[in-house]
């Protein structure tokens, strides 16, 4: 038998194989949208040459929030409590602002129990990527409607939902969130580009990803089933990402119209016009797109809104440039002379 030539293992800019970005085996239901998202996270982080040890994987509670165990096994992570991942991330950030905080949450975690913390993390423009794996139900507690369930949508069991949903993207835009995108777990290429762009952004980057729950909400009457989303997705633009380490000159120029947006780390997100041009700096246009899609029972995806001008939490905190973690103990504890001086001042009053 002829020997097959050993295939060279593909490496990223850090000379790391993709395997180093993988996690443990998933215990989610086979076919769950969340697993698709985990795979995109692995690919995006690897392709983007992110050092895994510099990532902090954060999550709340839910099937979605379990997924940090299934990607980036070389990163520390914190699977916190239900709906409270934003606050834990904020505290960790205050101590070590040099890590890339990659948060994963669910629609129950983010739109119900944790909506307050989500809102306040956006308000602070906390520097993190925040992915909502949005399936319209509480997967882990066996299929109750969540607050993002669309009107008229019906899950596998029970009646159709008639309560007005909370659109997390519209909410975020109204709050002045600096990066707002929607995607679909089945749209790997788009999600990959959006995710990389979010990682390159400084400030709060929300990606609301429709991620079907095959067990409780993938039936024909559901507006978040694979088939429904595939048939009713309205893409705002074709999305491409050009990393800062790739020479722009070597990137092929598209034939039609496109917009390039330069991100904080020098990378570019390229939005190619499909039919109408969507201007992601126009919050009104973004809200209109969301409301029109809702009226037509469609899901609009792409980079809805982007704003690079707002200061992020780091600037607000007024702390030293070095992460507080690396400030030495003798700086953290003021010297004895300082306390002596304070005692003396009080005693002389």
């Amino acid at each position: 038998m002829r020997e097959r030539p050993a295939r060279a293992i593909k490496l990223n800019v850090l000379n790391e194989p993709k395997d180093n970005y993988k996690g443990g085996p998933s215990s989610l239901c086979p076919g769950c949208g969340h697993d698709q998202i985990s795979n995109v996270i692995i690919t995006a982080a690897w392709e983007n040459g992110i050092p895994p040890e510099r990532v902090a994987k954060m999550s709340g509670i839910g099937c979605s929030s379990k997924t940090p165990a299934y990607y980036l096994g070389q990163s520390h992570g914190f699977n916190t409590v239900h709906g409270r991942m934003p606050s834990v991330t904020t505290g960790a950030y205050a101590i070590n602002k040099d890590l890339l905080y990659l948060g994963v949450s669910g629609d129950g975690d983010s739109a119900s129990i944790g909506i307050g913390q989500l809102i306040h993390a956006i308000r602070r423009n906390m520097d993190m990527v925040y992915i909502v794996e949005n399936n319209g139900v509480y997967g882990l507690t066996k299929g109750q409607y969540s607050a993002t369930a669309d009107v008229g949508s019906k899950k596998k069991k029970g009646k159709a939902n008639e309560t007005q949903p909370i659109d997390l993207c519209a909410l975020a835009i109204n709050l002045g969130c600096t990066f707002v995108a929607r995607s679909f777990s089945g749209s790997k290429k788009q999600l990959n580009a959006l995710l990389k762009a979010a990682m390159s952004h400084k400030g709060f980057a929300l990606i609301d990803v429709i991620s079907p729950c095959v067990t409780f909400n993938n039936n024909d009457e559901s507006m978040r089933s694979y088939t429904y989303v595939k048939d009713n997705e309205v893409t705002l633009h074709m999305t491409d990402y050009i990393p800062h380490f790739e020479p722009m000159a070597e990137v092929e120029v598209p034939e039609g119209n496109f917009t390039d947006i330069t991100l904080h780390d020098g990378s570019t997100i390229r939005l190619e016009t499909i039919s109408e041009n969507h201007d992601p700096s126009d919050s009104m246009a973004a809200l209109t797109a969301l409301h029109e899609a809702e009226d037509e029972k469609k899901h609009v995806t792409g980079l809805l809104y982007f704003d690079a001008t707002k200061p992020s939490l780091a600037e607000d905190l007024g702390i030293v440039d070095t992460p507080l973690l690396d400030v030495s103990d003798d700086v953290l504890r003021p010297p004895k002379e300082m306390l002596d001086a304070i005692n003396a001042e009080f005693l002389s009053i």
Binding site: T80, S87, T90, G91, A92, I95, G116, H120, V320, D321
Partner: peptide
């Protein structure tokens, strides 16, 4: 520039979460 960050949280739940985040990251929260 300070060597102590201060965050007025949205509630005590968030305050506790932040304290845990700080401790997890290796700091004194």
């Amino acid at each position: 520039e300070a060597t102590c960050a201060v965050i007025q949280a949205e509630d005590e739940l968030a305050a506790a979460g932040m304290v845990l985040g700080a401790g997890w990251a290796g700091g004194r929260g």
